[in-house]
Design a protein around this nucleic acid. Sequence first.
DNA 1: TTTT
DNA 2: TTTT
Lengths: 159, 159, 159, 159
Amino acid sequence: MAGSVNKVILVGNLGRDPEIRTLNSGERVANLSLATSETWRDKASGERKEKTEWHRVVIFNDNIVKVCENYLKKGSTVYVEGQLQTRKWTDQQGVEKYSTEVVIQKFKGELTMLGGRGDGGGMSRGGGDDDYSSGFSTGGANKPSGPRESYDLNDDIPF
Amino acid sequence: MAGSVNKVILVGNLGRDPEIRTLNSGERVANLSLATSETWRDKASGERKEKTEWHRVVIFNDNIVKVCENYLKKGSTVYVEGQLQTRKWTDQQGVEKYSTEVVIQKFKGELTMLGGRGDGGGMSRGGGDDDYSSGFSTGGANKPSGPRESYDLNDDIPF
Amino acid sequence: MAGSVNKVILVGNLGRDPEIRTLNSGERVANLSLATSETWRDKASGERKEKTEWHRVVIFNDNIVKVCENYLKKGSTVYVEGQLQTRKWTDQQGVEKYSTEVVIQKFKGELTMLGGRGDGGGMSRGGGDDDYSSGFSTGGANKPSGPRESYDLNDDIPF
Amino acid sequence: MAGSVNKVILVGNLGRDPEIRTLNSGERVANLSLATSETWRDKASGERKEKTEWHRVVIFNDNIVKVCENYLKKGSTVYVEGQLQTRKWTDQQGVEKYSTEVVIQKFKGELTMLGGRGDGGGMSRGGGDDDYSSGFSTGGANKPSGPRESYDLNDDIPF
DNA sequence: TTTT
DNA sequence: TTTT
């Protein structure tokens, strides 16, 4: 295929605390229940209405799992960037079901804390790590070394 | 809620021709089956692997429905920008099911043709309209009246 | 051209209060100075570093101009979605300059309030309007007439 | 700062072949000149109009630099995801200038080939690498190992 | 079910 | 300077 893009961008609030589990492989996974809402005024009745959409976010990136564990809770506002993925599973009655999730892979996607009620006050990020971050953002990288401040090309002119 | 964002960006190919239906309200709706693929080389075996994700795109914007009708077909490459929306429905056995879709609302979202095998050659967009467009892009338009809560199609099954 | 996309997504804080001006046409324009920051730990020195990028956001959508006027101030956190646009202008010495801006057109782009220090407390949106909104989001609106080619502000300098 | 986001998404065509240079550090950098266009019908005159925006894209990720070198040329259509960055420089007359660029960092951003006239036919990506890719997409990762196909949580239910 |  |  000549290239494709699968990207989801959400800003919303957690409906409950993150759930973190350990797979048989030892790998940790975080699950978030994230709400986005729209409000509008109904043209006919003049009433204000609201509709909330709930998103299931699944995180396989361990740096981001740690942020979920240490900083997020019910009510936290987050920016999430991931991929749409539909998973098939079978319930206890043997019925096939589908679940569509926003997945933050090990090497793809981001999560950035944006504050909100759930934040326990402090914004300090905890020390001792060598992560690259955009504020409380986490993701994308492996062992980055910071943004580029300048580079030595002197024949660059705006075009 | 202090503002939220719900945005999906996809670039992929149509798995079949667009399906266009007319609702009881007279409103037209287009459905796209859009594939995005990832390929990678397996570290262990060294083999090239591929995984395809299928997305159900539902379009309520009539300008975009017209583009689907006139220009898109199986194999077309498109850029789609919409919202994630999960819809509950009941199948013929009375079982509740959920379908998560990428929705292009009447007044939100975009679709841009990017070529691909399915394009029947001509790129001319048809005249006589006064639409704003970015290339073959369509969207962003007028007179919003709130998000869609439900629509009366009962033959929709997750795919 | 077979379709193109020009989209900028920013979440950051205002460095100063919004500036709102009226063009000769009577149209109002809001300018925001928006900061995004990245922090990282320097691999060599182990020090925490930060780099801030300043973005000039220019808003031609009057609903969003009103939100800027009524709700935003220095310190506010906002989500902004617009287009990249580079404008050429001539300074008082007759030197040609270029300014690249994130533009929210009349019929394209969004702004969503996400809280932050600058918010004067209340989140109430003001009544009497029939706007469609996603939280405090505003945008996506009607009756487009083409992109903006130039506007008559001659005191604009890159910042 | 409580987290920020700085993201640019472009789909357009290259106005010329990629320029690739080597910095004093030995690091390679690719520069792309990318066009995005909008067309619209003027309401007054009824004429079709077009406006093209040119974007300077700067790439520090070596995997993506290789894709530019081997597969892209004048006319190629690409999807680019990067960060907005403004760089100050001094021209030969000693005048300070600013250049705003879309930067694909070493560990951030993506480039995906979408075809277009410039593509020399072959889509084969060259072998012997262990890169993760989405079609011809490149970026984001370091040593990824492919998308997740399934995971062993059996208590997952749609919510 | 697409695409390469 | 691209593309249709």
